[in-house]
Design a protein around this nucleic acid. Structure first.
Length: 271
DNA sequence: CCCGATTCCTGTAGGC
DNA sequence: TGCCTACAGGAATCGG
């Protein structure tokens, strides 16, 4: 399930193929994604030169002179560069062909992803305009978490998963970061000290960076632009490890539900 | 404003 | 073996 490291891994995988390339043809096989693929996006994209492949939060941005394609991978989306005439697979919803004949394919079984188009600054698009800071930027730190959380009564896990607070921290990395920071996921966000928030911000940065280095986390669905899985799964300390021994204290990892989401933690190491 | 619940979707896993 | 159900989750949206 693509979180920030998986999206960044995808971006790195497709960027060298796409930057400077001219789009020769766009085929939409299924418009029915999380939001309908806008009719006419083929015309907007065809003939355009992709001058950069950027990421904001979990959105990928294919920038051209006349506008930007905004792609979100949702739960199960993947982007892959395939050779000309590669057989279409089930759930290949979009194909963007470039002049070399290579094709960028968007595959998404659960269709929680999207492909949109904007002629304006993509950062002003309604979906992107109200996002919080990037977790790997300096503006995201313990002081930021501390000040934005005062008076907030939700749990710290739900707080860091809120994209208006900080982007890119999904269910897996929220549990992993809280474990590394030694903070219980049910703690009230507004009552956590600056010191502990600093540990948490540092843990989030570290976990995300390590995962990007490993090519992301592949649980079931995720494969990068080369069709390879990510290896961060091997470094997960708590996620998906209910009942297994904590890597630090050997006590069994617990699973609870917070806001309808599975949450994993060590009852001994996280207070 | 804040926060919990609901919603979209399909592949997979577990029970019988 | 096959059917049925529960579950997984990003994030917008709705309702209290």
């Amino acid at each position: 399930m693509p979180e920030l490291p998986e999206v960044e891994t995808t971006r790195c995988g497709i960027e060298p193929w796409l930057v400077g390339a001219t789009i020769t043809q766009v085929r939409i096989h299924n418009h029915r994604l999380r939001w309908p693929v806008p009719t006419g996006i083929e015309t907007c994209l065809t003939g355009q030169i992709i001058h950069s492949v950027e990421r904001r939060a979990k959105y990928l941005l294919l920038k051209t002179d006349s506008g930007t394609a905004i792609i979100h991978l949702g739960m199960s989306g993947t982007l892959q560069i395939v050779a000309p005439a590669t057989t279409l697979r089930k759930h290949d919803h979009v194909e963007i062909e470039i002049e070399s004949g290579s094709i960028l394919r968007f595959n998404d079984p659960r269709r929680f992803g999207c492909l949109l188009w904007t002629s304006n600054n993509p950062l002003d698009h309604p979906l992107l305009a109200h996002l919080g800071p990037e977790p790997l930027h300096d503006e995201f730190n313990g002081a930021y978490l501390y000040t934005t959380s005062r008076s907030r009564r939700i749990t710290i896990k739900q707080f860091v998963m809120n994209a208006a607070i900080v982007v890119g921290v999904g269910n897996i990395y929220a549990s992993e970061s809280l474990f590394r920071a030694g903070i219980h996921p049910k703690r009230t966000a507004g009552r956590i000290s600056l010191e502990r928030m600093t540990r948490l911000a540092d843990a989030i940065k570290l976990v995300l960076q390590e995962s990007i280095q490993q090519g992301g986390t592949t649980l079931r669905d995720f494969y990068n632009g080369d069709g390879k899985p990510g290896y961060f799964k091997n470094k997960l300390n708590v996620y998906g490890r209910e009942g297994e021994a904590c890597v630090t204290c050997q006590k069994p990892i617990r699973k609870i539900f917070l806001g309808q989401r599975s949450t994993f933690y060590c009852p001994d190491c996280q207070k």
